[in-house]
């Protein structure tokens, strides 16, 4: 009457729900602990240590790396990063919402359109950003086309301008805005729109009083998904902005590579992280407020 090992293991899990729960959490948890939390903790420690001569750190404690941020140079970078990320988020929202809305109404083309939204992810962000260069440069597709139809004589300088950076950011993050908004619009009960219409709501009122408020969770999710990565982006401003106006992401990258100032790079990372946390908190706060006003629980 010896039960198989497998049977005994199953019985054990069956009688110990706590063990069972932990066994589900453990693999992923362990991965995050080793490859995320430990490095983050190391960077946090580094950010308070003096800089080593050839990279790395020396023992000791200092706040100088954080204090450096009060320098107007770095404050400007912080400000610029926040403004850029905000503009990018708003642009993605204004461009993405109508697209998401149209997809929910596209009937049998829905699948195809969603596929097209996701299609850019099939190539790497780096490749797509390089492709933008070919589009935007003085002898690029846009300028050549405009010149050949005689609309302009001289090429419009687009590459290595803040405009190009913004274009790249919006292009890169637009799908992250469209998808969550689409998901929340898709769930919208159409009979609510009909109810609004019978109650006398014209299309505009119907949109602002019913559709938009009910898709707000998607808007908030999309805004976070765009705002957070665009705060930390460095590739786009590097390639399309010509590294002329650096963002905090570029700063972190530079400090770890060219400048070999690991502690300052670490400190910059934590400032960035703080910025993300603050923006998330503001969002949650706003959502709670708007929820209260609308009477949400």
């Amino acid at each position: 009457m010896s039960r198989s090992l497998r049977q005994r293991a199953l019985d054990y899990f069956h009688h110990n729900p706590t063990v069972r729960a932990w066994s589900l959490v453990a693999p992923g948890g362990l991965w995050l602990l080793v490859f995320f939390l430990v490095p983050v903790f190391m960077m946090f420690t580094y950010s308070f240590m003096p800089r080593g001569m050839y990279g790395g750190v020396e023992s000791g404690f200092t706040l100088e790396h954080y204090l450096r941020f009060f320098d107007s140079l770095y404050l400007t970078i912080l400000m610029r990063t926040t403004v850029d990320a905000t503009v990018c988020t708003v642009a993605c929202l204004l461009l993405g919402y109508p697209v998401a809305y149209a997809i929910t109404r596209a009937g049998r083309f829905k699948g195809l359109l969603l596929f097209l939204v996701i299609l850019p992810f099939w190539t790497s962000f780096l490749v797509r950003t390089f492709a933008m260069i070919f589009l935007l440069r003085d002898t690029g597709l846009i300028n050549t086309a405009l010149q050949s139809i005689g609309l302009i004589d001289e090429p419009i300088v687009m590459l290595y301008t803040p405009f190009a950076v913004m274009l790249g950011l919006v292009y890169g993050y637009l799908p992250f805005m469209i998808l969550p908004i689409y998901a929340s619009l898709e769930k919208l009960d159409l009979s609510l729109l009909e109810a609004a219409e019978v109650l006398g709501a014209r299309p505009a009122a119907r949109f602002f009083r019913v559709t938009l408020p009910l898709s707000l969770p998607g808007v908030v999710a999309g805004a976070l998904l765009v705002f957070i990565p665009s705060l930390g982006s460095f590739l786009t401003s590097d390639l399309l902005g010509g590294a002329k106006e650096i963002l905090i992401g570029n700063l972190v990258q530079n400090q770890f590579t060219a400048a070999r100032n690991w502690p300052f790079g670490s400190a910059a990372s934590f400032v960035l992280m703080a910025l993300v946390l603050v923006s998330v908190l503001i969002y949650l706060r706003v959502r709670e407020r708007s929820g209260d006003a609308a009477g949400a629980p």
């Binding site: 009960d189 009979s191 609510l192 109810a195 609004a196 019978v198 408020p213 609308a294 949400a296």
Partner: peptide, 13 residues
């Protein structure tokens, strides 16, 4: 005026 089958009350109001 209309009363809907699933009531269609606005969940956010």
């Amino acid at each position: 005026a209309m009363v809907f089958q699933n009531y269609a009350l606005f969940p956010h109001l």
